[in-house]
Design a protein around this nucleic acid. Sequence first.
DNA 1: CGCCGTCTTGAGTAAGTTCAACACTAGTGG
DNA 2: CCACTAGTGTTGAACTTACTCAAGACGGCG
Lengths: 251, 251
Amino acid sequence: MGVQRLLRNTPGVESHPFLARLARYADLDVAEVGTIRNAMQGALTIRKKKDIVLEGYICDALHLVDDGFGVRYKLLGNGKRQVLSVILPGDIIGLPGALYRRAVYSVSSVTCMRLNVISLKNFMHLCRDIPSLAFGMLCLSQEDLVMSSDHLIDVGRRTPLERVAHFILELHARLHSIGRASPNSVDVPMSQGIIGDLLGLSAAHVNRMLRQLQEQRLISTCNHTIMIEDATRLRFLAKYEPHVLTGLSLG
Amino acid sequence: MGVQRLLRNTPGVESHPFLARLARYADLDVAEVGTIRNAMQGALTIRKKKDIVLEGYICDALHLVDDGFGVRYKLLGNGKRQVLSVILPGDIIGLPGALYRRAVYSVSSVTCMRLNVISLKNFMHLCRDIPSLAFGMLCLSQEDLVMSSDHLIDVGRRTPLERVAHFILELHARLHSIGRASPNSVDVPMSQGIIGDLLGLSAAHVNRMLRQLQEQRLISTCNHTIMIEDATRLRFLAKYEPHVLTGLSLG
DNA sequence: CGCCGTCTTGAGTAAGTTCAACACTAGTGG
DNA sequence: CCACTAGTGTTGAACTTACTCAAGACGGCG
């Protein structure tokens, strides 16, 4: 009786990771997928380490991530920064901002990114025309909320070692669920400074924790790729619970 | 062109704080308000410090808070607890859980609470029948996301003193926006232990920070009421930015 | 080849936790 | 009506921990 993920995929949905994600919740027919697809204006390419959205600026469009890594963050008065989330293919940039007219947080690319734009006006028309779109977006929004809550648990009540371990597992799960990670390795293109700002740690301490995980033979690293050497022990250490979201546990 | 808050209220909307909150985003007519109102089954009263939702249990209904304080939290393996959010009148309990069939986090009452129940089945029917309901829920969901993100910033990158100050201001703003706080005092019915679990601090340290705020004549306390003695300095200390959400800054 | 950003490491320091003890309050049951 | 109890608030001292700062190594890119 719950909201079930749709097992079959409407054709056309594979053409963009956002559509694939949406289609897990919204029961879209081929015509509707086409309508949404058409509303997505031409692709936009962003180079690495560029700002995409700046806090406080007018925000009247949604950016749907087709490829690449980004971060959503906020700069504090004291020069510190909190990274709120890692943005991956299929994610939406600019949602809370669009609903309040001005961006609430900043977003910048980590790697080169490919985005598709949809204006807020068009998006709202689509919500009116396609009944299940708004509901699907509600579900995606709740996904984000659960991710944000898990992140909060990380930062608030886990030890630094647990946080780093958890971060690796979570990023891996997210990437794996969209077919962008092999079973036991993850590409982590962000610097340890960014990871520190994500986990509420100093860059130096992230480094130490990463080193400790390697010494315990739980992971190994090579360039910016992390290999998960012992998933069981790493999960145990991180008290990791596979997401309802990324998980495959939904019937 | 953004999503504007509706300045006029549809009659009937004042009968429940959830409807009032929803009506800021969803353009509901009188009939629609009545339909939603009817779907809300009889009121449910919960005594203080009782569990309302337990993580992992089947969750097939939404609870709309009419009155009282609650907390959404998660228990960690090591006995620690992270309080994810304070639940106030107008909030919805059980949303992420309902969409995934099982509760993702636990919720318990802090004070005595009055709730209205709406089954997930009815809710989904309503979303289909009332086009703007799903969209309004999306907006409320984004509100929660922004609150969660702000909370994350607190815990990740603010000093303990800033966190406590920020917590007081934020709770005050939320209560004030629903007409449940006077201009310069807040009722804070939760223990310092709960505040600690909310802010990622020990109860002892919350106590010290609270004292420090009193010594600096920024606040004063009396029973479970906090008086804001110097809002300007308190805001400055907390680097508080009034929410787009609770704020009145939306045109 | 040289430069900039990142990684790595150490030492000292500031900070918050833990633990423990006691005061106070409200609610309970006799 | 009063003792009792459990939960909360309050405080101090010792301890751990992660930060800060700084310096050097590394590595990719122009």
